[in-house]
């Protein structure tokens, strides 16, 4: 199972959301990166809908 591979590897964390959780990681020397997350199109619903329509093209 992939989980067991995780247990055997160095933990590398992507943090998305509260930056303090990322700071906690850094303070423990855990290799981590913080995502400066924003809702798609900055929360502009109209733009998000337009993007979603374009993405629906397959």
């Amino acid at each position: 199972m992939k989980v067991n591979e995780l247990f055997k590897s160095e933990l590398k964390v992507i943090n998305m959301g509260l930056e303090s959780f990322y700071q906690d990681m850094k303070s423990q020397d855990v290799s981590a990166i913080h995502v400066n997350w924003k809702p798609a199109a900055g929360g502009n619903e109209k733009m998000a809908a337009l993007l979603a329509r374009m993405k629906s093209l397959q």
Binding site: L6, E10, L11, K12, I14, M16, G17
Partner: peptide, 10 residues
């Protein structure tokens, strides 16, 4: 972050 294996989402 090459080799990232876990995402913490809040």
């Amino acid at each position: 972050l090459k080799g990232a294996n876990l995402v913490q989402i809040s």
